[in-house]
Amino acid sequence: MRHPEAKARIVADRSLIADAVAEMLRLVTPGRYIRRTATADTEIGGHRIRAGEAVVMNFTVANYDPAMFDEPLRFDLDRRPSDVLAFSWGPHRCIGAFVAQVEARVAFEELLARFPNIEARGPAVFHPSLATAVVESVPVAFLT
């Protein structure tokens, strides 16, 4: 709703909803941080990490990496983000990631089918949390 041109494209072509959900998950990463303990001495990006030290991975920052995403702050329906870390990666990827993506897609399909003229009436309010993005409220107007 903060991007009227993109919303108009989605309302006109509902097949774009899956791409929009992927881009929304990139911009508002649900799982922000994850902490792990190094099991062996290693080096990442020139930084030494010793066995037993804590390592915190910041998925939000990764999803805004300009080396991975051109103009990372811009909402882009045509981005087709395949490397988004919204639900982690590898063996620790969220087991419910697929279900969450389907739920989001279906929610937007139904919302836009019933209220194609929905408009934002203020910014989303997030609950303070380092671990996850928790939306407390999204003020909207359901226009007919």
Score class of each variant (00 low, 15 high):
Pro4Asn: 11
Pro30Trp: 02
Pro139Asn: 12
Glu103Asp: 13
Asp41Ile: 08
Leu77Val: 09
His127Trp: 08
Arg80Tyr: 10
His127Val: 15
His92Trp: 11
Arg80Cys: 07
Ala133Tyr: 03
Thr29Glu: 01
Gly96His: 10
Ala124Thr: 12
Met1Gly: 06
Pro72Cys: 07
Val28Phe: 14
Ala100His: 06
Ile17Met: 06
Val11Asn: 05
Thr29Ile: 06
Ser88Trp: 04
Ala97Pro: 02
Pro128Arg: 10
Asp76Lys: 03
Pro123Asn: 14
Glu109Gly: 04
Ala97Gln: 08
Thr60Tyr: 01
Ala54Gln: 12
Asp78Phe: 06
Arg80Leu: 09
Ala8Arg: 14
Glu110Ile: 09
Arg80Val: 09
Pro116Ile: 08
Pro4Cys: 10
Leu27Val: 07
Ala131Trp: 02
Leu25Trp: 00
Phe98Asp: 15
Ala124Leu: 11
Ile17Ala: 01
Val21Asp: 00
Val106His: 03
Gly90Pro: 05
Arg79Asp: 02
Arg48Gln: 14
Asp65Glu: 12
Ala107Lys: 05
Val99Cys: 02
Pro4Arg: 09
Arg35Ser: 13
Leu16Val: 09
Leu16Tyr: 05
Met68Ser: 14
Pro139Lys: 11
Ala20Gly: 13
Pro66Tyr: 10
Pro116Phe: 10
Met57Val: 15
Phe87Trp: 13
Gly46Leu: 04
Ala86Pro: 01
Phe108Glu: 02
Asp65Cys: 02
Glu136Leu: 14
Glu71Asp: 15
Pro4Met: 11
Gly90Tyr: 07
Glu5Val: 10
Thr37Pro: 01
Cys94Thr: 08
Asp19Asn: 14
Ala67Phe: 00
Thr60Trp: 00
Pro128Asp: 12
Asn63His: 03
Ala38Phe: 02
Thr144Ala: 15
Phe75Ala: 06
Thr144His: 13
Gln101Ser: 11
Ala133Thr: 15
Asp70Gly: 11
Met57Ser: 10
Ile10Met: 05
Thr60His: 01
Pro72Lys: 01
Gly90Met: 08
Ser88Ala: 12
Ala100Pro: 04
Val102Trp: 05
Arg14His: 13
Ala54Ser: 14
Ala40Gly: 02
Ala51Asp: 07
Ala131Leu: 12
Gly96Ser: 13
Val55Asp: 06
Ala40Asn: 08
Phe108His: 04
Trp89Asp: 14
Asp19His: 08
Val102Ala: 06
Val56Gln: 09
Asp76His: 06
Pro30Val: 09
Ser137Gln: 11
Arg2Gln: 13
Asp19Ile: 03
Pro128Cys: 10
Leu85Val: 12
Ile44Arg: 04
Leu112His: 04
